[in-house]
Design a protein around this nucleic acid. Sequence first.
DNA 1: TATATATTACTGACCGGTCAGTTATAAGGA
DNA 2: TCCTTATAACTGACCGGTCAGTAATATATA
Lengths: 219, 219
Amino acid sequence: MGEPRSTLPGTPRWQRRPADRPDEILDAALVVFGEAGFARAKLEDVARAAGVSKGTLYLYFDSKESLFREMVRAKVVAALAESETYVRTYEGSPRALLVEIIRRTYARMRGEQMTTIARVVQGELGHFPELARFYFDEVILRARRLIEEVLARGVATGEFRPGTAGFAARGLSSLLVHTAQVQCFFHAFDPHGLTDEQAIEGVIDLYLHGVLAHPAERT
Amino acid sequence: MGEPRSTLPGTPRWQRRPADRPDEILDAALVVFGEAGFARAKLEDVARAAGVSKGTLYLYFDSKESLFREMVRAKVVAALAESETYVRTYEGSPRALLVEIIRRTYARMRGEQMTTIARVVQGELGHFPELARFYFDEVILRARRLIEEVLARGVATGEFRPGTAGFAARGLSSLLVHTAQVQCFFHAFDPHGLTDEQAIEGVIDLYLHGVLAHPAERT
DNA sequence: TATATATTACTGACCGGTCAGTTATAAGGA
DNA sequence: TCCTTATAACTGACCGGTCAGTAATATATA
């Protein structure tokens, strides 16, 4: 995130590090936009967090908006790509894979920066049609396809029931994203709050079995 | 939402309607905050939408923040209360009640203003700790309790399996809220988009049955 | 290897627009 | 007539974006 500028005599007041600046600024942007949301976030603060001056931001990014877009792009794509290769190289049963994907995804959403991004993006989508399009194509759809692939494998082996394809992947995304968000935002208030581990187990159990006692009786 | 101010000669330029103003302003606030988010929303616009001048807002509300809080309070509580009496007076089977609650809740979230509120609130929660507390207590928890009651009835009759209580209610909230939001924000982009009806059926099917083909084999 | 010169990364004061909140004034109504 | 309700002009803080200038580095020259 950029060293604080040195004030020691002898050391230069700042260094030229054009290769590192963009990433440092993007990291800072994630933090500041994440805390404040787009509109409240001050470029001054992004600059300070990145250890540069405000003018420097404009050497690397065109505007506040474009900085925001670039930040989302940079931070979101890596995570998804990782999950994709995980699925592609996995060799166990589809059910075990599904459980593993749920665990990993939840962990990432809770631990790192994804809930922040999801929250801010969601709040700002209306004002950035271009970003909305990007987010849908590169995040929502891609995640959905990944889950659909896992589900399809399970249907092929007979572990998962067929005919859920239309919604099941969307459902899992929603379950994961929103559960993580609620845990994230409201855990502090919740007297009977679940631990993250309990929440994950709940997601897995619910997603695999549903709530019916006798699911054989289909309607 | 307040009549536009008359400019016809003869008609008074404005009327004193202190009893009606607050609600008109709250309606206007919902629209404007919903479109713009808290930070971007201009009180000028709220005033115009309410058919009053900006100064008038300050006769009824202390500040932008307090207007926002009051708006959320006013708009959210009614909806929940309605569902609560519905559940309390329902006489059919728990399973039918659950399905009905899902349908109604989804319909309300999609048709009216709830997704808007949910989105904006979520985006702004970090900046309004007091509102967050209120929202958690009066919305999240209350909705959860309502669902838990329905589930408990079903467990009692043997229709629902026991032991899901810890998470099942949370899971349904997440599923409903996030599904409605995704439908709302991204339907326009989605080439293979589901209709609302399909989405609801998906939620119901998934929530009742889960994805497993042979749920008997519990782990 | 030291010094002059050119280049480019970076700074921070400043400008202009925006908008929450205030206030002086007017109009309605009992 | 006097109080309440409403208006609209006003203020001042705030912040995105700019740019003239400066500091760090690279290159050329002796």
